[in-house]
């Protein structure tokens, strides 16, 4: 017995050449929790050369339904928090992202096939963009709202208000910078969001969900579903409890016609942000360009208050 042991077959658990791979099967992010898809399905995520990276949950329409319920439940609290507090919370997300920089870089590299330096730059830009949007939280009302001159003895004041629950189809190509560029502008104003991640490149989104879960963002404010865009997107587009939808990820998605999605969204008068380009030529914009406030204002309502002016 002791001879077998001394023969060197029992190495310590840390020995590199015998270590068993920790194979990753990621889950969804709904309501601040990480559930498996109710369908029980998962799909293989591969890198830009087709090599296996991880298994991701293949979300179903019912997962999207649950995510909308979670987003709706979180809306009152998130929209009701002070703008200053929302800004602080979102800044904290950037801090956690910074701590996971190496993981983001590796995933962006593997998913998008970028060189190391380029991937570093993209991750930096994504984190910076998150900070940029976070900073807008307590400035939107001053910039977008204001006192309206009216023909009568009234103070007439307009202020931006969040639209509600927003569905977001994340860009298929830019797996982190594009994702941040569509999610941050939605939540900064107090909307809650159901994100359908890039179908082929979901890993940075999954890591973002882990960053969100460990920052102070209340559960349900951001919900991320991985899976087939063509399968799940129509259910989000037609969902009557979703108030707006960003179709950025409909560009270059397998089997998705954004026109059909816009048609379904019209059923309950959702606000719709179309992908760039026209018709079947819809393209992903260049996410590295400096953003403006258009993605923020697309998901705002304007509340106007009239108050009599006395002496």
């Amino acid at each position: 017995m002791s001879a077998t042991v001394s023969a060197g077959t029992t190495r310590g658990p840390g020995a590199a050449d015998t270590r068993v791979d920790v194979r990753k099967t990621y889950k969804l992010y709904i309501g601040g929790k990480f559930p498996r898809s109710e369908s029980g399905r998962s799909y293989e995520v591969v890198d830009h050369r087709g090599r296996f990276l991880a298994n991701a949950a293949q979300g179903s329409r019912k997962d999207a339904r649950d995510a909308v319920v979670a987003a709706r439940a979180a809306f009152a609290g998130w929209a009701g928090s002070t703008a200053y507090n929302r800004g602080q919370v979102l800044y904290r997300v950037a801090e956690v992202m910074e701590g996971r920089r190496a993981q983001f870089v590796a995933e962006v590299r593997a998913s998008e096939g970028l060189a190391e330096r380029r991937a570093e730059a993209v991750v930096s830009q994504a984190i910076d963009r998150w900070v940029w949007y976070a900073g807008w939280a307590d400035k939107l009302a001053q910039v977008l709202g204001g006192l309206n001159p009216v023909a009568g003895p009234y103070f007439d004041i307009s202020a931006p208000e969040p639209t509600g629950v927003v569905g977001v189809l994340a860009p298929q190509g830019s797996s982190l910078l594009g994702l941040v560029s569509v999610v941050a502008p939605v939540v900064v104003s107090g909307n809650t969001v159901v994100v359908l991640t890039s179908e082929q490149r979901p890993l940075p989104a999954i890591t973002l969900s882990e960053a969100l879960a460990t920052s102070d963002v209340p559960g349900g404010v951001v919900n991320l579903i991985t899976g087939r865009t063509a399968e799940v997107a129509p259910w989000i587009a037609s969902h009557r409890d979703v108030n707006a939808i960003d179709l950025a990820g409909a560009a270059a998605a397998d089997g998705v016609s954004w026109g059909d999605l816009e048609l379904a969204a019209a059923e309950n008068l959702k606000r719709v942000v179309r992908p760039a380009g026209a018709g079947s030529d819809a393209v992903e914009p260049d996410w590295s360009r400096t953003p403006d406030l258009s993605r923020v204002t697309s998901f705002l309502e304007t509340k106007t208050v009239w108050h009599p002016k006395g002496r």
Binding site: R72, W235, S238, R240, D241, V242, E267
Partner: peptide
């Protein structure tokens, strides 16, 4: 309707 409904309805 074939679409998920919501509390507004």
């Amino acid at each position: 309707t074939g679409a998920y409904s919501g509390a507004d309805y």
